[in-house]
Design a protein around this nucleic acid. Structure first.
Lengths: 206, 206
DNA sequence: AGTGATTCGGACGGTGTGTCCGATCCATGG
DNA sequence: CCATGGATCGGACACACCGTCCGAATCACT
């Protein structure tokens, strides 16, 4: 509403702003009540726009879901990146990594539950979201790979196939997230992360 | 009048038979393509009955889902029970337990994905199924509890809070199931179970 | 053959999605 | 000052699914 002159750049900005406006609302609602329970109607009205306008910015429900996931994802990656710089020791890094991922769960448990399910499903929402999730998984796997190699090099981890190790660690983290997503009153996040990390480290220990 | 009891019993049998007929189809379809993607129409026609007839046996979609889960569940418990008798050593029992659970996943991966999501959600399908899943979790937790106590008593596991141990083991298994449910071409089941069990046992080792 | 239960087929109202189009607002440029 | 074009609105439409209902047909048993 401020500003006299509108250039094409400004229109871009406005457009992005509108988009984010809808995405924010959708993320909140999806996070609170799950995806199947939130209609496009509700998102639109909550965001203060007409339903048809939402379809100007997102081709369909799936695209909106994808946008929400991408937002969650980039947020997560950013958090992990700073963690990665702050911590050096593999065990600490793992613990902080887990803590960041649990934070995502705490942020929007119901939404995360969706993320879990849709993995690999050819369902309506699923196919798009599943692909997105797979990419996230790959990125995290890369981080874990480096972490395992580093740990083995330092002699704190026993020798084992990095691929198997990644898979097992990933499974543990996945399970921790999923279980937490389902709990009405989860434990303090740092405690949970510490326990999980310690258990994994025991399993990896030399 | 004559043979009333037999007649009634027969009706019971027929009724159960019909029910199972629908449940079998539903389990297959849900397992193949997920729950959101299979309509009641399709289940009915695939089972060779009218849609309205399905609603004679199941109050709604949620009830049908519950019935499917219960079928899966009792099948799983039965398999575990025989395993439990065959195996004595905690490590072996754990490995076989995991193998049985992965078998459930292999049986109907898409369906199992549902089971994961709905946990704790107030979504339409979710609330009923979630409750069912919670019960299953409790039963499995009981088994794991005994297993941990036994392992500690034998001195093969290090001393740790059984509740924490159960939670961690559960998370690992949960993750293993979830990841496998999302994989198009999962590894041989026994290998996966062996790796997972071994990792857990390392984490528990004295 | 008669009777009661079971199943069928289809109609209905409700809800949600995605598409479409005219009406409206508003900044810009002539 | 007004015309123009883009963004937005609001609502209608077709489609799909769920759950309910009811009359008609079918079947099993006496």
């Amino acid at each position: 509403m401020t500003g006299r002159r509108t250039s094409d750049d400004l229109k871009e900005v406005i457009r992005d702003f509108r988009r984010d406006q809808v995405i924010d609302v959708a993320r909140r609602l999806f996070g609170e009540r799950g995806t199947t329970d939130v209609s496009m109607d509700e998102i639109a009205s909550e965001a203060g726009v007409a339903r048809s306008t939402v379809y100007v910015y997102f081709a369909n429900r799936g695209e909106l879901l994808r946008a929400c996931l991408q937002g969650m994802y980039s947020q997560l990656l950013e958090a992990i990146a700073t963690t990665w710089e702050q911590e050096e020791e593999p065990g600490r890094r793992l613990e902080r990594l887990i803590e960041e991922m649990l934070a995502v769960v705490d942020d929007s448990p119901a939404f995360f539950r969706l993320a879990l399910v849709t993995q690999g499903t050819p369902a309506n929402d699923g196919e798009v979201v599943g692909a997105e999730l797979a990419l996230i998984g790959l990125d995290i796997a890369r981080l874990l790979h480096d972490l395992v190699v580093e740990g083995v090099a330092r002699g704190v981890f026993r020798m084992l196939d990095p691929d198997v190790a990644i898979s097992l660690i990933g499974q543990q983290i996945y399970g921790a997230m999923a279980v937490r997503a389902g709990e009405p009153m989860p434990r303090p996040r740092d405690e949970a992360a510490a326990d999980t990390a310690q258990f994994i480290l025991h399993g990896l220990a030399a």
